[in-house]
Amino acid sequence: MNSLHKHCIALAVLAIAAAAQVPPVTLTTPASPQKVPGADGFIQRWLLLEPIGVTGLTDSAVQAAVKKEYFPDQFTVIPNDGDKVALGDSQLAWHAVDTKLYNVNLYHFAHALGKPTSDVLFWAVTIVNCPQEMHDVRLAIGSNAASVWWVNGKEVIGIYGDRQTVIDDGVSRRITLNKGPNIVRAAIVNGGGATDFCARFLDAEDKPLKGFTVSVVGTGK
């Protein structure tokens, strides 16, 4: 390793350290057990896993990336804040967050932790608690970039390519939300630059669904 390389690495380490000191200004730690959706129905409470390195945004690349098993019970786990998963030699932590905005800024999230934001996969999970069965609703999401979404274990949305977050970009077929908890899970793959997502449910008239709460207090592993 020559001196130039060493110099570059040192600068990179300093840059990461400096970046890690920047708070995720749009994200806060949940302060209540339940949260109602925002004015436009957006789900603003999530558990986010620190990013996993992946490449490719095409349909097949994203499907391969999200279907690969990175940690046990990947498609069923309801993690708690602070839980960790082992990935090779490293450990990645789950973080419970509330977003102040309609969207969840994953760039803020990763950047604040000193984690990479490009060529990465973020896992996100939340629990939607319904007072009664809700029929003919649709999950509606936007993501930067590609993403795949599951509701109660069933894959309902996949949007691919290098795209920006647009409200209701990807929309599921009509589904039924159970009375009680419903698990919404997402895998968001970013190529480079900004990365974020937003999600809400639409009712049978394509209006934002409300009347439910959101929590991230899971049943544990």
């Binding site: 509606a140 970009d169 639409l202 394509d206």
Partner: peptide, 18 residues
């Protein structure tokens, strides 16, 4: 059209672009 990337069947609303 429902959202940007999905199409479905629904009742016709003459006032909507969907």
């Amino acid at each position: 059209a429902v959202g940007s990337s999905f199409a479905t069947l629904s009742k016709f609303d003459p006032k909507s672009d969907k």
